[in-house]
Design a protein around this nucleic acid. Structure first.
Lengths: 147, 147
DNA sequence: CCCTATAGTGGGTCCATACCCACGATCTCA
DNA sequence: TGAGATCGTGGGTATGGACCCACTATAGGG
């Protein structure tokens, strides 16, 4: 009995393209995490914003927008959301009253830890086929590509 | 003189997530190729469709939609585009006149070769930081994740 | 004090992806 | 020969990302 061809099989010509795999696997990973976050009314950039504040300390909105590569106007909306939830403080800079300084609150730090755990869970799923050493190798290679 | 902090630096907490890197690098790769294709009025799935026909032979529209994970309605529009350019033939199946069989034309095969070369160029850019052996390693790992 | 530049923000646009439905044509089978 | 299923297709909708402009409040130089 002959093996049945899988009607959903990807064309080998595409599987030979590393960029195709990169794009597909990356999209899948992002999609999974985005879905989890969406269930809590959050987006990926909310996570990124909290992480940036945790790692680099307070930012003005403009600076944070630059760091995350977001439009200042879009970041303002994201900051709204995060401030409303009590995860960051938005204080007017007394030295330049145009500026708003964003600072992570303890509640924000706690939330960030939860989101990071969530991301870790997705990562375990996505990387399941790889042994720990292989995951480390992959991580190192991707890090080099990221520059 | 102290090193100036890079205001666009990504939060280390995110760089530690392999899925973050995967998603970012993958998005970048897809974005670059999509831009090149867009300049010629094409989308990524046009390339994928041609590749599938080349690798697996003629498909009905339905089968091709299943293989590529596209909505049948959307694939119909893509097939329009490709047929209009003369890259595939759309023939009514005499045995079941509801079905349209898509077959790659020689012109389509030639176009596919061009697109594949284009994709290869993008890939060389994206993978530039890696040595050939490392690229092979990366490819192998991604292939395992793709299943 | 005026002029120009900048920070934040509200309210949009544009685009791609992913759906989804209804319909005509056609097939299959009882 | 009808009932129901299936293929292609036209014409939608929903979503998220990226971008953009106008406007207010504020700063700072001349």
């Amino acid at each position: 009995m002959e093996a049945m061809a899988d009607p959903t099989e990807t064309p080998p010509a595409l599987l030979e393209l590393t960029t195709y795999l990169l794009s597909k696997v990356g999209k899948d990973a992002r999609h999974r995490l985005a879905e989890l976050l969406a269930a809590e009314g959050l987006r990926l950039y909310h996570h990124a914003a909290l992480a940036a504040l945790a790692d680099f300390g307070p930012h003005t909105q403009r600076d944070l927008a630059v760091r995350l590569g977001l439009d200042p106007s879009d970041l303002a909306k994201a900051a709204d959301r995060l401030a409303a939830a009590g995860w960051l403080d938005r204080t007017r800079d007394p030295a330049d009253r145009r500026r708003l300084t964003l600072t992570l609150t303890p509640a924000g730090a706690a939330r960030l830890a939860e989101l990071t755990a969530l991301a870790g869970g997705v990562q375990d799923e996505v990387l399941a086929p790889l042994a720990p050493a292989e995951r480390a190798t992959l991580h190192g290679l991707l890090l080099r590509l990221h520059g």
